[in-house]
């Protein structure tokens, strides 16, 4: 199971990332989960400095400004990576 988390402090960029990840994960619904976290303590505890951030199973995939294409490639690569193991 891939547990994705989008972490942000509630700004528009963070919501945009959440919606984007949601859209990308539509085709992988059976083995993925997505959660939105806006608790600052949790963000800081993960060592994240810039938001929004994308986390997969406690591994930080991306932090800060993003582009749609970059996030798409990142998610697809990571889903493939772990299924090979």
């Amino acid at each position: 199971m891939y547990k994705f988390k989008v972490l942000g402090t509630g700004c528009t960029k963070c919501k945009k990332l959440y919606e984007l990840v949601q859209k990308i994960l539509i085709d992988h619904k059976q083995n993925t989960q997505l959660e939105y976290i806006n608790d600052i303590m949790q963000i800081v505890e993960l060592g994240i400095l810039t938001t929004p951030a994308l986390v997969l199973n406690d591994k930080v995939l991306h932090t800060g400004s993003f582009s749609e294409e970059q996030i798409k490639a990142l998610i697809i690569r990571n889903i493939k990576d772990e299924s090979n193991n």
């Binding site: 303590m41 505890e45 060592g47 591994k59 930080v60 582009s67």
Partner: peptide
């Protein structure tokens, strides 16, 4: 606050071309 040392996707191995592509998409957005 205690900060965990989390594993982060490393960006160092990105090729020059990949960096340029990322920069292009980022600029667009």
């Amino acid at each position: 606050i205690k900060t965990k040392n989390t594993q982060t996707e490393t960006l160092e191995q990105l090729s020059l071309k990949q960096r340029a592509i990322n920069a292009f998409f980022y600029t667009k957005e």
